[in-house]
Amino acid sequence: MEHPHRAEAPVLNKSVPVRHPGRWISAVIILALVAVFLQSLFTNPNFRWDIVGTYILDVKVVQGVGWTLLLTVTSMALAIVLAILLAFMRQSDNPVFRWSSWVWVWFFRGTPVYTQLVFWGLIAVLYPKISAGVPFGPELFSLDTASIVNATVAAILGLGLNESAYLAEIFRAGLKSVDKGQMEAAEALGMAKGKIMWRIILPQAMRVIVPPTGNETIGMLKTTSLVLAVPFTLDLTFATNALANRTYLPVPLLIVAAIWYLVITSILMVGQHFIEAYYGKGVDNLAPAAVNPAAAKAAGAGADVKHSMKTDFPEESAR
């Protein structure tokens, strides 16, 4: 066959697409269920949306949101610092470090966070005074434990230490995911161990570490509702529960709490998106390289041809 009109655009295939009746049926069923649910939201008087509206911006509730955020951020910060340390210790040449790190993770992952929170609440009973001095020798100074470990500190310690054990495993997995060649290349350049970890290995490990850590942060947001065990009584769940008990209206106040948790989670997810983008630089969000420069040149030449064709027929585009 001859092709006298090579330059002409090919006639595109217009095939009949495969039909998907299952998609339509499932869509109808799901939409119907959603409609029923939405209708109940608006028509069921037991939801008491008026009460939700009254309490959503209540001072106690907003303060509860603040405390919940504070607990989440500080305990996660504590957990991240400890987890980096634990993960580095686990990779250390020093067997004492490796062993201590393992025991830490074993203990804090192996006991319920609720138990740990109660324990931190009782620390002042267990050790009424914190003192520094030579063991079995003279005492240098001493402080009342209760004055240092108040309910807030106990809650942060309880949540943070527990979380550090989980995060340590996430960080360990992240560090292991970095190619061995990276360590060798940095070593060959004469970089010191610490610099290699901070500048080469950890930034690459972050790509693997950030998504599960985001998960853990959102988990932590809700775990803060357990600080009642300390007892710490200012967080969001405690505040809404207290209001529910006073008003005898548990459902609308649970909705108030749920709305706030959802709002914070959504904000955290946005933050996670940007952190992931930052640590993915150079790897995730780039066009793949032209592996074959000849092909790239040819593609470039093709673009030039198109360009020159346009300039050859200016009246064509003007029409």
């Binding site: 290349a185 070593e187 350049l189 004469g190 010191a192 161990k193 930034p203 690459q204 790897v283």
Partner: peptide
């Protein structure tokens, strides 16, 4: 380790798999 790092500074190495820092 520090002394070994100092010796390595005088010796450049090029790897089969390049091992550039991707970030």
């Amino acid at each position: 380790t520090k002394e070994i790092a100092a010796q390595r500074r005088e010796i450049g190495m090029v790897f089969q798999r390049f091992n550039l820092f991707p970030h």
